Computed example of a mutant assay.
Amino acid sequence: MGFVLISRKGCHLCEEAEALLEAQGITYTLKDVDADENLKKLYTFRVPVLLWEGTVLLEGKFTLERLSKKLLL
Rank of each mutant, 00 (worst) to 15 (best):
R8Q: 15
R8H: 07
S68R: 15
L71C: 03
K70N: 08
G2K: 02
K70Y: 02
L39W: 10
K40L: 13
T27H: 08
V4N: 08
L67W: 09
L5N: 06
T44I: 15
A17I: 03
I26V: 11
Y28G: 04
K61P: 01
F3N: 04
A35T: 08
V4I: 13
K70C: 01
T27G: 11
G10N: 04
H12R: 12
A17M: 08
A23L: 14
P48A: 09
T44D: 13
W52P: 06
V56P: 12
T44N: 13
D34R: 12
H12L: 11
L20K: 05
Y28S: 00
D34Q: 13
Y43C: 00
G25L: 00
M1L: 12
F3P: 02
N38T: 14
E59A: 10
T55L: 11
Y43Q: 00
R46D: 10
G60S: 02
K61F: 08
E65G: 09
E59S: 04
L58Q: 02
L72T: 12
F62K: 01
L21T: 03
V47D: 01
G10S: 04
N38G: 12
A17Y: 03
L13F: 03
R8P: 10
G54P: 00
R66I: 11
R8F: 09
K9T: 14
F62V: 07
M1D: 12
K69F: 10
R66S: 15
T44V: 13
A19Y: 11
K40S: 08
L13K: 15
Y43P: 05
L20E: 06
L73G: 12
D32A: 05
I6D: 04
L21I: 08
T63S: 15
I6C: 02
A35V: 05
L58I: 06
D36I: 07
W52R: 15
L51M: 07
C14E: 00
H12K: 14
